[in-house]
Each structure stands twice: as structure tokens, then as C-alpha cells.
Amino acid sequence: MSSHTQHEQTGGFEPKIVAFVCNWCTYAGADLAGTSRMEYKPNVRIIKLPCTGRIDPLFIIKAFEKGADGVLVSGCHPGDCHYTTGNYHARRRWIAFKNLMDFVGIDSQRLHFSWVSASEAIKWVDLVNNITDEVKKLGPFVEYKSLGDRQ
């Protein structure tokens, strides 16, 4: 927490962003960005899951508790899910839990949801860059981190 404050004072705050991505679309898209030698902000930490439908909302809370300043959830476009309907489950869960996240004190500006397909390397690069800039403006998210420290 103290390191965050120091960074802020020196203007060098680099946010930590956790991205929960699915194996088939967004992970492959991020991989394509790599093989195409595109550059993007290094602030994102990718956690690969088979499908966005695997994402338990608790993962997101846990990510903030472990020090994330922003969370990104990204999967296949509607209709393109490798598992047919997994991204629809994720979308429904997202709609149901977004307000709840707000209620428990997570600023919805720190939460992002997107569809990035396996061929959309450029979209992935833009997405990560934009979210990093946005979260950077919001500053460090310390409330949940302090809960984690207390444990």
C-alpha cells in the first residue's frame, strides 16, 4: 500500500490489471498480437481459463484483494463461443453481478468486459492500452488490497 502512495507522489504509478481471458478467442488474440510483434502496455497479467463461462465472480473480488487495480474479462464474440454457450453464461453473470460489485465497493470503472476474437490482435492491443490509461487516471485501488493484507 505504501509503495502505491510513493508511486503516486512521483507520478510513476503503474497499475496492475488482471485479465481473465478464454483460451480460444482472447488468449489466441493476445497470442497473435505477440506473434505479430505488436507492442502494448505491460501492465496486464493474463489468467487463461478454458472459457469465460468458467469465471466465478469471486475470482474478480479475489483479484482486487490480491492487489489488482483493474480487472478485464474478455472472451469470444456472442455466437462464436468454442463451447457453444459459455460466453452467454459469462455475459448473464456479468449483468447480474456488475451492480453487486458496485455495491460491495468496487468502482465499475475498474471493471471491463469485452469480446476479442482470435484474429483481433489489434483490438486486444487497443483494449489493454485504453484500460491501462483509464485505470492509471483512477489511481491505485487500495481498499480491497488492505482487506487482503489483514488476512
Binding site: L49, G53, R54, D56, Y83, G86, H89
Partner: peptide, 26 residues
Amino acid sequence: QGCGVCVAACRSKSIDLRGYTDEQVY
């Protein structure tokens, strides 16, 4: 096929996905 939709849907946390268990994600 191992998509894990059932894991996130389970309210009693009685299903886990080999290779992507809750424990591993945490």
C-alpha cells in the same frame, strides 16, 4: 469438453475443473 461453465454455476462448490481448479486460479 472442459469448459468449466458448470463449475462457476455450482452453488455448493462441488464441481471443479481439472487443470483450472479454484485453488489453481487463486
